[in-house]
């Protein structure tokens, strides 16, 4: 299914459906030709920030540009001068890496102006409704009202799992890391099968199990672009319900799964749920991938590349969606850690 737009008004109205929320004070890059991502960034606060952002986006686009690639730049801001400067800077930078910018638009709530051709027009509710109806017909979820609403979806009721945590920790001391890892892998498999929200008991047990880096890696390794949506669902829910002391691994897994699913905005929001003051190396790495605009397909290749020192036959719980012949994470890292990594 494709969302085909015919006019500038329709192009602007399509933006929330492309990125999952309605952006404000943002510059949005929309591919017109070529297999490029959609990009959204806050309008730069000053020239220096603007230069950095433009360079960064251009660098990432250059990795994926094909001959003939082109994009539209839409600046959604109250300041037409900022829109002119930012879109102009993007056009110059993108052009230098082989991506044309035939359309540069400044848009506010009720009108738009296209700088290249000097045309302008009105934005209409009818167009927004038409695009919304088309996406409903495609079976797509409707966009959230704002990026803040996307972030809020990752903040749930953390009380019930907080209550369940002491018992989960006590039970973990009476088990072994390998047993808890095997249970976590099996529980993930059950989620893949039924899609049901985890109980507070299972949620607490899984969050405690994730404090062991090897267990976390087994669940991380299960992720692929084919099942990323299910992982996003699981880890979004658990990130929202996890108390501070056990949230960093779940938030990082949510960030990674969101990136793998193509949703960079949700990925950033997930990483924001790593409690302030806690340093968690997986979160830093996922943030690096997001900042540099890595395409999720690169993970498939990295995941498929087995390195000899990564294989250890001593412990191989059945990975939920594992296929014969794929590798599992190695166990030659540091001993299991009990608590978020520092």
């Amino acid at each position: 299914m494709s969302l085909v737009v015919q006019t500038h008004d329709e192009l602007i109205a399509a933006i929330p459906h492309l990125i999952g929320f309605t952006p404000t004070e943002s510059a949005v890059v929309i591919p017109l030709k070529g297999n490029l991502p959609v990009v959204r960034v806050d309008m730069p606060r000053d020239d220096e920030e603007g230069r950095g952002v433009v360079k960064e986006i251009g660098g990432a686009l250059s990795r994926y540009a094909e001959p003939g690639s082109s994009v539209a730049v839409v600046c959604l801001t109250g300041d037409s001068h900022d829109a002119q400067l930012t879109s102009q800077a993007m056009a110059a930078e993108f052009d230098s890496v082989g991506v044309e910018v035939p359309v540069r638009i400044w848009a506010v709530a009720d009108r738009w102006m296209e700088f290249n051709a000097g045309r302008s027009g009105e934005r209409t509710p009818q167009t927004e409704n038409k695009l919304a109806a088309e996406t409903v017909a495609m079976g797509r979820a409707q966009p959230l009202q704002s990026r803040e609403a996307l972030a809020a979806a990752l903040e749930g009721d953390r009380g019930p799992i907080q209550v369940a945590l002491p018992a989960a920790r006590q039970a973990a001391t009476e088990s072994t890391p390998d047993q808890e890892c095997a249970w976590a892998v099996e529980r993930l498999g059950q989620f893949h099968h039924d899609g049901n929200r985890l109980s507070d008991h299972d949620g607490a047990r899984l969050l405690v199990a994730l404090e062991n880096t090897e267990t976390r890696d087994f669940l991380w390794h299960d992720m692929s672009r084919d099942n990323a949506e299910a992982h996003v669902s699981l880890w979004t829910d658990l990130t929202g319900r996890a108390p501070d002391e056990v949230r960093a691994p779940a938030a990082s897994l949510c960030g990674f799964a969101s990136w793998l699913h193509g949703d960079g905005a949700r990925a950033w929001c997930a990483l924001d749920q790593v409690p302030e003051g806690q340093s968690y190396s997986m979160a830093d790495l996922v943030g690096g991938a997001l900042q540099q605009g890595l395409h999720p397909s690169v993970w498939e290749k990295a995941r498929a590349a087995v390195e000899p020192d990564e294989i250890d036959e001593s412990f191989t719980p059945e990975t939920p969606t594992r296929h014969p012949g794929t590798e599992i994470p190695g166990r030659n890292g540091p001993p299991p850690r009990h608590g978020p990594e520092r």
Partner: peptide, 29 residues
């Protein structure tokens, strides 16, 4: 990344999922 890499503005990259309903493209005539 440079030392100040974490202070840079966050860029949202939206890529088409491999296999889902999210298969729109922004095409402009």
């Amino acid at each position: 990344q440079p030392e100040n890499g974490r202070d840079r503005p966050r860029i949202d990259w939206i890529n088409e999922p491999k296999a889902s309903s999210r298969q729109e493209e922004g095409r402009h005539a």
